[in-house]
């Protein structure tokens, strides 16, 4: 499925289940997403992470709602399953779509200005380097006997200094490779939204609406 359409569908459904309180629909969504990512061959370590980490907030919300909520145990379960529905919905997108494809389709099919699509993509591709840089900043502070915490302004200051420098370099590099802002572009790789994408999108969306309308529990 086209990554842009998929993301839109996932976010729309996630938004909808935030406003509705159907335990059954949440479980169906989790099951369907689960099957989808299994078909796409996800490894078991990732699956374990997907189930393990959300356990804490899910149980936390459940218990507090159970003890202090006025809506009873059913609503507590709704919140519990809602967290997992978010996670599995998100996983159907993040585990099967590449961010490059997303940027390409957002530019070509969703009319996002190319400077946003490619600018953000360029920054995202620096992610491994950014993680490294955060480590470097922390380590070099340690060498001066300073410990940077998540609340240390200097940590962010140094991160921003790197950002300023890198953004300048990246923008210049892109310009020197022939990227011109606000000019029409031709594309080496063309991503289209196909008829099948539309059918899948509308079909799944309608099914979710019908379920939310019919299944109230």
């Amino acid at each position: 499925m086209n990554p842009g359409m998929k993301l839109l569908l996932v976010v729309l459904i996630a938004l909808e289940i935030s406003f509705t309180q159907s335990l059954v629909v949440n479980c169906i969504l989790i099951a369907v997403c689960f099957v989808y990512i299994m078909v796409k061959r996800m490894n078991f370590k990732t699956l374990f992470m997907l189930i393990f980490w959300p356990m804490f907030p899910a149980v936390g919300l459940f218990v507090s709602q159970w003890l202090y909520g006025s809506a009873g145990i059913h609503f507590a379960w709704v919140l519990f399953t809602r967290i997992y529905a978010y996670v599995f919905l998100g996983a159907t997108f993040t585990l099967t779509s590449s961010i490059t494809d997303l940027a390409l389709t957002l530019e070509q099919d969703f009319r996002l200005p190319s400077k946003f699509a490619y600018g953000v993509l360029a920054a995202f591709n620096l992610m491994p380097k950014i993680r490294e840089e955060v480590q470097i900043i922390k380590t070099s502070a340690l060498m001066r006997g300073e410990v940077f915490h998540v609340w240390s302004p200097k940590l962010y200051f140094k991160a921003i200094l790197s950002s300023i420098q890198w953004s300048q370099n990246l923008a210049e590099a892109m310009t020197s490779h022939g990227f011109v802002e606000d000019e029409p572009r031709t594309h080496y790789r063309i991503i289209r939204i196909t008829g099948l994408d539309w059918v899948t999108f509308v079909g799944l969306f309608v099914i979710v609406q019908a379920m939310l309308f019919l299944i109230k529990y």
């Binding site: 953000v120 920054a123 921003i160 790197s162 950002s163 990246l170 892109m174 990227f179």
Partner: peptide
Amino acid sequence: TLRNIILIALI
């Protein structure tokens, strides 16, 4: 500008 967009994304 392209640079500002990249800067925001990087931060």
